[in-house]
Structure formats: structure tokens, C-alpha cells
Simulated assay, not measured.
Amino acid sequence: MSEFLVVGGGVIGMMTTLQLADAGHSVTLIERGRCGREASWAGGGIVSPLYPWRYSAPISRLSTWSEGYYPELALRLLEETGIDPEYRQRGLLYLRVSDEARAMAWARQVGKPLERVGPDFLYAKEPAVVPGLEEALWMPTLGSIRNPRLVRSLHARLAAMPGVTLREGCEVTGFRMAAGRVEAVATADGEVSGGQVIVCGGAWAAGLLAPLGVSLPVRPVKGQMILFRAPPGLVRRVVLMDGRYVIPRADGRVLAGSTLEEAGFDKTIDAAARESLWESAVAIAPALAGCEVEHHWTGLRPGSPDGVPFIGAVPGVANLHVNAGHYRNGLVLAPASTRLLVDQLLGREPIVDPAPYRPGREG
């Protein structure tokens, strides 16, 4: 029996497992499909909330910590696995920002580099963006990561660690309780026992906990994205305009996203969303109109009432914990939110005050 049992193999579950294993503990990770193939794979990989000045302090604290951690993590995983997560710190250009004064005030308050730039600077950085703009906001420190490769490298690292057991293709069907604690996790392949149980089920977390009488206000929020096959250098860095974005990859491909849809667990793609995403991308970088749309996909974000994740012990169950509800910022917040929970699990001084994230808080 492992000391820790993690339910859910997305980036939150895998980073939780990695940190516990790094601390010398045995961990079993249970994933109903393949690790990292849901929202962790589907997102864009921007290592910041889209408009960070519009978010609450609890999200800002986690995102700031995570942003500083990603370069180190990417280098570590490349060295240990040979799989490059492609962390790129090329900055972000904000076009047509409606609340510019608020953005600049936020940047001064938190000490974040953010500056207003003119057309010469803008088109020197991104010649392909829509012509005729007179200004933009420039955040030079922002990075992005190629999340499908991040999850591949995390999976490869965990598979090589002696204290880690990966059980993929193993769906959790319930929990066996005794004396106010989880005795075992029931799966389609039989029961699995662990000392402490951590639910990292993303959009499915509420459904996993409901049979225990635990009400977690996390719901699926559908998002669709498209991928252009573009020549390297057409788009050089992340560009955001009117709530939509384009994200370049090292090989030239450009992601464009994303939709926000309240559609339950429906993961179908549709032509209207594809057209809307194409139009938004071409409005940002007109040259993309001549590039093939190579792929169109969807993912389910774990929405929560205020966008602040639920991190910590589940009230009323002695050995049950949760880390879910990151909404649009799962990858952004993953290093910090998993570190915060692991700090609590191991009795360490937490990196931030855990109170705003506690399960059972009023939302």
C-alpha cells in the first residue's frame, strides 16, 4: 500500500505525485484513461492568466509562484527524460486593451514589467500582427510551455521513479469508507488502498466526491482550439486581442483559442466554433489566413464559482484531500497549487496562506 494515492492523472495529479515522490514517499497514481490527455493536453500553455490584473489576489499569488518555477521544471524534465517541454520566455503583446490604466496600476503594485509601446516597437517584435495599431502593452517576462510535451515528460519521469506506481486505464468507481476515513478506492480493476487520498479529478472532481456527500462546486466548461501549420517565425510570441490569443510553438505551428461554453461534459467540436477561432486568429495575424488548419479539438476546464481552486483537506473525511477547480488556469497554477497541498500534507510551512483555497469555503 502506498503512502499516498492520487486520483486523476492530469498536470495537477502528476505534479502532486512528482513532489511527493521527490520527498521520498510512495505514491500510486490512478487515471481512468491516459495521463495528461484531458484539459492538461487541450490548453494553450500560457504561463499566466490571460489578463492577470483582472484576477483576485489568491490566483495572483499562485500564478506568480508558478511562473518563477516553470523554467527550472522544464530544464529538469528535459535533463531527466530527454523530452523538451519547450518553455519559451518570449513575452506577450496585448492588443486593444480596454482597461489599460488598471493593467498599469496592477503592474506597478506587484512589480511586474508591463509597458505601453508604440507601433515601431510592436511591429519590430511582431511584423505579422494586424497593421495600423498605434500602441500595445508589452509584458516581456511572460512564458509559454508546450503542454502536450510537458505532460509527456512528466509521465516519463514518474514512470522511471521507483516509489511511483502508475495505474492508467483504471476508472475510479467509488470509495470504501470506515470510521470517517477512506479505507480504499474502488476501481473497475478492484480496490486500491493508500494512506492519504488526493482527488485531482479536474472537471470530474465533483462527481467523484458526490457519493461521499461532499459538495464541490466544480463544473465542466468546454473550450475549443485550433492549430495552424505555419512557417517558423510567422508568429514569434504570444499575442492577445479581444480575449482571444495566438501562441507560437518552436516548429512554427500556431495555436488559436479559445471558446468558453457551458455544455456539460459534451466534447464535440463544431464548425461555428472553428470559424470563430479562425476569424479571431486572422484578425490578430492576417497571414494565418494562408495557413492550413491542421487540428481542431476541445477540452473541459474545471470551472469554479470564483476561479479560485479548492486545495486542501476535505471536511469530514480524515484522510481525503482535493486539488481541483482551477478553471482557465490549471496549467498556470499547477506548480504552486500542488506545492501548497504537498506542504500541508507533509507538515511544511506553506508557500502561501492556504485559507482562501480551503474546500468547504463559501463561494
Rank of each mutant, 00 (worst) to 15 (best):
L277M: 13
R229C: 03
G10H: 06
R96M: 09
A287F: 05
A263F: 06
T338S: 13
W53Y: 15
V97G: 03
R244Q: 04
A101N: 08
L77I: 03
D99I: 01
V239H: 06
L20E: 03
N147Q: 07
I247K: 00
G360P: 06
E86V: 01
W297G: 09
L78Q: 08
Q224D: 05
L288N: 13
A263I: 08
E126Y: 08
A230H: 00
A107D: 11
D343P: 03
G243Y: 12
G24P: 01
L255V: 09
L331Y: 00
L73R: 09
F4N: 01
L75K: 12
G213H: 04
S215N: 06
A287E: 14
G207D: 06
A184Y: 13
P248G: 09
Y51G: 08
V185E: 09
V6P: 08
I145P: 00
L154T: 08
E135M: 05
G13I: 09
L150Y: 00
L333F: 04
R181T: 14
I311Y: 05
L50G: 03
P131Y: 09
G202L: 12
E362R: 15
E38H: 15
R358W: 01
R76P: 02
G143H: 00
V164Y: 04
V172C: 10
E135L: 07
V197I: 15
V129D: 01
P140L: 02
Q344H: 07
L133G: 04
G44R: 05
L340R: 04
L137P: 11
H25Y: 05
C200I: 13
A107C: 10
R176L: 04
T141Y: 03
G202C: 10
G190E: 07
A186K: 14
